[in-house]
Structure formats: C-alpha cells, structure tokens
Design a binder for these strands. Structure first.
Lengths: 387, 387
DNA sequence: CTCGCTTTCTTCCATCTCGGAACTAAAAAA
DNA sequence: TTTTTTAGTTCCGAGATGGAAGAAAGCGAG
C-alpha cells in the first residue's frame, strides 16, 4: 500500500495551522489548540473534524493524567500518527552520503551511510536511489525524500553551485525523483538543518532564533517571525570567512586573518596546532590536551573560545534572538572553553541585557540528514508552496 | 471645534490596512491598493466606502498624469487629508525641550524649543503643557501628543528610569494629559525615532530594517516583519558602551575601551582630540581638520570610520536587513570618512553578499521630536492597541 | 445511586469578509 | 462614432468565525 505523494492537501489555512501545531508541539487537546491559536472552541470542532476523518490526526488516550487534581470532563488530546508516513533524508558530503529514515515527528528510526566514490551527478543520484531502496525496504509508507547539499540550491530542486562537488546547475531533485518515484526536495544543508531545528528542535515556536554551526566550516541561519531568512548571495560556509573576530588573530590557509573560519573550524584549529608543534593532532586530542593545561593547545582553544564568545555576543546584541543554537561537530569546544566563552559573552554585552539563551547541541552528519528529511515533511504538510 | 481623541476607530482590520497603506505610501488608486494588499477590486470598493464617508480618505485629482501614454478610464487616487489633524511631538533632553507640530503625514509644520531649568516631573509636565498651548494656538485640530525621553519607558506612559533626568517611575503621560486634555504617549526617544522611520522614513514598507544613530550616544533599533523589536533590558544608549569594536581602541571616560561609544560618539571623539592636543575642539572643527589632513584629528576620525564600518558590517552580516539607516547628529563623519567606512564594510563581508543598503540621514533634535509625534499618529490610527 | 459541579467538546446560527462575474464609467484609439 | 482599454461598482455565493446553548464525561457529596 504505497501512499501517494499527495500530501495533506488540500487543507484550508485554518486546518493546516491546527495540523502544524499538533505536529510540532505534540499531542494537545482541542481546548489547548484553541488557546494557542486564539480560536473559538466551535472553530476547533470544525477544523479538527476533517483532519480526524482523513486520519491525519487521531484521538489518543490522555497522557500522564494529573489524576485527583483534575476536575470536569477529561480532555481528549489529538495527535498525529507519527509513523503513518516515513521520510528519507540525505546529506551529501564529498566522500560520503549519509541517510536517515524519520517519522512524521522527525525522529530517526534508521540510518545508513555509503561512501561516495564519484561526483558524477547521475552516479550520485543512483547512489541515493539505491540507498532509498535499502532504507525503504520493509517500510512501505515512505512519503518523500529530502537532500542536503553544501552550496547554492535553487528552487529546492537544482544545485546551482557546489564547489566541493564541482557541480553547477545539477537538477538533483529531478534525477532522484526519476529513479525513485518519490517526491524529492534539495536544499542547502545548513538551511535544511535550520528548518529542522525551527520546526522540531531548539527553535520550536520561537519568533527570533539563530543557529550557528561549527565544524568543517561555520554555518549561520536566521529565523525571524518563525520563518528562516533565505540567504542572499554569500552562501553557507562562505559567510564566516569574512567575519573578522580578532584582527590580530591567526593566519590560516582558509579564511581571512582572525576570521571565524580561521579561529573556530576544526580544520583550522588543527592547522594552527600542527603549525606550532610540527605534528598532526586530532580535534579531540587538542581539546583533551587543552583541558589538561598543555600550553600550546590551550592557547589555541582559549583563543577559539574568545572568538566564539565574541561571535555569540555580536549576534545577541544585534539580532536579539530568543535563543541561539550552537551545533555541529565542533561544539566540543564548549566543554573545554565554556567558561571563556561565557566570560567573553558577558564582556561584550550590556550587564542589564537579557542573558543569551544559548543552547548547545552536539550533532553529527545524521543530524544534517535529518534536517533534510524535515524538508520532505514540510513539503508534505504545507504542499509545494514553500519559499 | 476641538476634535475628540476618538481616533479612527472603530475600523475593521481590512479598513485599517487600507488606511495605513495610503497614509504611509501616499495617494494611491483603488487598483493600486488592491494590488499591494492582494485584495480583489470588489473588496476595495467595500473597504474604501466607509473611509471616504468618514472623510478619513478623500478622492484627489490624479497627480502628474503621464498623459498620452495612458489608456482607459483614469484612476482615482485616494489620499488622507494630511492636515485634517495635527500632532505634537516633544523630545526632552536634560536642558532643553524640543517641540514640533506635524501633519498626519508626519511633515513638520512648526517647531519650538524651550530651555529646561528643572527636572521636577511636575515642572516638566507644566512646560510641555505650556509649549502645547503655544504650538496649538491657531491650530484647532490637534489630536495627540507624543513625548520622547531617553531612558526606560513602561507601557508608553511611565518613565521607568531615566538617569539623565534622575527620574524613576514618573507617570509623564498622565501628568501631561491632565494639563492639556489631549491624549499623550511617552516612549523611549530612540524607539520613537525608529517607529517614525519605519512608518514614514527610510524603513517604509521594509521587512528587515535597522536604525543606527550616532550623536551624544549610540542608538540601535531593529525592525523585523515591519515591527520594531522592543528592547529588553539594556536600553537605548547603554547598548553601545559594550559593543567592543576594537579591543586596542582608545580608552575614554565613557564606554569601555574601544567600544562603539568610545569610538563614535561626539563627546568621546572630542575627548580623544582634546586629550591629545590639550585644547577643546568642536565636532565640526575636528571633521574639517581631518578632511584637510591634519594628522591627529585625521587619525581619530579614521579610527571612527573603521569602527563604524565594522559595526555596520556586523549588523549587515547577522541581521541581513534590507536597509540600514544611519542617523543622528554625528553622521557628518560619513562626509569625511565615508571611504574608510565603505572599505571597512567591504572588508568585513563576503564579496558575493548583497551590498549593504546604507542610508545616511542628518538629523537634529527636531527629528527626534517628530519621531515622538509619530507615536501619537500611530495611537490615533491603530487605537491604543499597541505593543 | 443520584444529583450537582466542572470542564470539554459539539451543534447551530448570525455575521462578516472575501473573491468572482457581470456590469457601468471614463477616457483614448481606430 | 465605435471599439478598446482600464477603473471601479454591484451583487451574490462560499467559507470562516465567534458566541450561545446544549450535550458529554468525569468527580465528589450526600
């Protein structure tokens, strides 16, 4: 029983907002939804009826009832059927494709990686299609595919420019759709990650929200009014190369002197330590040594901590977000240099300003793939009508 | 014939959006309004009818018709009657009260200043009331008063804390209303200025917009989704004291070393030059000498230019506004150090990033008073239902 | 066990707003 | 004068909303 890619459409705007509220914020009674969306109880009966009929929402038993305290008729929570549909998400790096299967609630239920040996678009699409077959075996109700790629993506379908893959104008979504028969969306990987966190993660329900990722590069995502601000021009990793955090900072092969990229990314931190010590260190080694007080790594890590604090403070000062999510493979930095970061933030902010809502999330490539899967969820829920 | 303070209410949301569209963007035909608000022509007839009946809008002769090129039935622009109501705006500084009268379109039609010799709340209210009488003499249709004060203002009515006036919890709006019989709103001066620019100035119709003011202090205002983001905590001038733009920058009595306040405000620039030369310079003198190449002022001005460029670049990088308005008494800096500013901005941004939409506006205290008057306009148009 | 209380949810209806089709109005072009 | 073009109006049906009244479902007191 393969479900078609029809999505939830057609839904009226009111119905859609109810569906999204439940999807994003978990099971909720009609009264609760009415309160959150500022609607009358009557409207809620009307709006939920078709959603229940189409089995998009179901009534679920009341969760951990605060029995005894409660009075009156018990509420009847509504919930989405999280595993009524599955979604595939892929993150393509230069030498690996990471894939996950998620539920409608964006919980990862399976994951799978395959090395990428060629950058030929058709071969990549074939690989994604093969992984799709594997991942959707024994899992009939797959509703869509999301793919995250570093680089510029146009119209959620075409990779406009991706230096690390050497692509220009590759209609990846189409290639994958042809080979899988499933609807596919392609998006910049950071953008996908930000969408995922906005819908299902740290940015849930927030009006102003920032995502900062540290890893091989520096990523930045801005969410205003609950919607991600699309990048314009300078895309993705490119940003941080020009954020000068310390004009007297280290000079590295990548990024300008003292830039966020030079100071914060894993390759450049490793470069700095290697240049000073003459031998190769892993990122974890550097952090561990710094924690133990070895001078050279400690200096580099402390400098990175100060840079990160400066960066976070600047963002907090100018954007005034309700929360800043710090994610990526490089956030281990916070374990070692957390105090430096905190101090630097405090040092660069008005003492009476609201404390920065900083949240740390260790994330790996599967989280990026999960982000891509969220795009597929959004398409299903909202229809193709996305920005 | 004193018009009551009833405002335009009650207006339906649709009617209000039409009224605001015309108020803010100038005379417009029904078709044009329909296009901008994405409404049907039929709706426009319906929505404009009551507005025309209440004389809130009027039909005006078609402006500079591109005769000859035009075909079909000529359009019939609608406009507000700009001088159907007048609004008073006051800006209170520690030694002066600046007042203006504006039209509904926020054009200044009269201005008036009076020295402030005491900081006693009642005396200040009396002075504002006296100025109100003078300004509204021969001008019967005054609809409201807006007052801008440096410091923290609560509920658009009470000055929560204003260090320079030595106030704490002064219900200024009430005091003025009692003495004038006119509705009064009080707001932080920078906030008022930002509102004015958002409705009637550089931020008109923009989604993401930033105002940066340089003068006695540094002011910052953020507009997202067409609405000003309210300050939380660290208010107003206080901000910039902690924005460190150059850790090795000058140390001044006010603001941290190398902070925006130290580097950019007029008093601190004058302090730097005085400290180095041993004599007092006016701000204009400093700029002129710098322009002529005199080394010491030139160094201070160049440093200020770099700081401003850094600041603008940071804002552009993180907030990605469609426009940044640079205003205040200190923007003369741009005439002398404009190139340095531009260079520094370019230096701190991704080369492919969209160029910064930087707009310069020389403004004096009357522009701040005008900003306060806009608050009164907003209250009239939107009703008390403001944030 | 029943009655009353409380809270949730449903039913029903008056109201409001909108879009769309058909129509009128006004000017230029043929 | 007729046709074309654009602006604006009239009219009506579709859809969404809130509010009032009522039904439902549990709890506890008597």
């Amino acid at each position: 029983m393969t479900t078609s890619a029809e999505g939830w459409l057609p839904l009226s705007p009111g119905e859609r907002s109810v569906a999204i509220e439940v999807l994003v914020h978990g099971p909720m009674s009609r009264t609760e939804i009415a309160r959150r969306l500022a609607l009358s109880p009557g409207s809620l009966t009307r709006l939920t009826k078709p959603l229940l009929e189409s089995r998009l929402l179901v009534e679920v038993p009341e969760a951990g009832a605060p029995a005894g305290v409660r009075q009156g008729r018990p509420s009847q929570p509504l919930d989405v059927v999280a595993d009524s549909r599955y979604f595939l998400g892929f993150k393509i790096t230069s030498d690996m494709v990471y894939g996950v299967v998620t539920t409608l609630r964006s919980e990862i239920v399976a994951r799978h990686n395959r090395p990428l040996t060629t950058h030929d678009p058709v071969d990549v699409a074939e690989l994604v299609a093969a992984m799709t077959r594997e991942l959707s075996r024994d899992r009939p109700r797959v509703a869509g595919i999301g793919i995250g790629v570093g680089g510029l993506v146009e119209g959620r379908a075409v990779v406009g420019e991706s230096p690390f893959l050497g692509w220009r104008g590759v209609p990846l979504a189409g290639l994958v759709e042809e080979r899988t028969g499933l609807p596919a969306v392609v998006e910049n990987d950071t953008a996908a990650f930000v969408e995922a966190e906005t819908w299902f993660g740290a940015g849930r329900g927030l009006d102003r929200f920032v995502v900062l990722t540290i890893g091989a590069g520096v990523g930045y995502g801005l969410v205003l009014g609950g919607k991600r601000v699309p990048y314009s021009g300078g895309e993705d990793r490119g940003f941080g190369r020009h954020w000068i955090l310390d004009p007297h900072g280290p000079l590295t092969p990548d990024g300008r002197r003292g830039s966020a990229v030079s100071l914060l990314t894993i390759p450049n931190i490793r470069y700095q330590v290697r240049a000073a010590t003459g031998r190769d260190w892993s990122y974890e080694e550097i952090l561990a040594s710094a924690a133990e007080g070895e001078p050279m790594p400690a200096r580099v890590v402390e400098e990175a901590g100060r840079a990160l604090g400066t960066l976070v403070a600047q963002i907090a000062n100018f954007v005034m977000p309700q929360r800043i999510l710090l994610a990526g493979e490089g956030v281990g930095l916070m374990d070692v240099a957390g105090d430096v970061v905190e101090d630097t933030i405090r040092d660069n902010r008005h003492p009476q300003a609201e404390p920065v809502g900083l949240e740390i999330k260790v994330s790996d490539f599967h989280d990026w793939a999960r982000g891509a899967a969220v795009l597929a969820i959004q398409v299903l829920v909202l229809g193709a009508a996305l920005v």
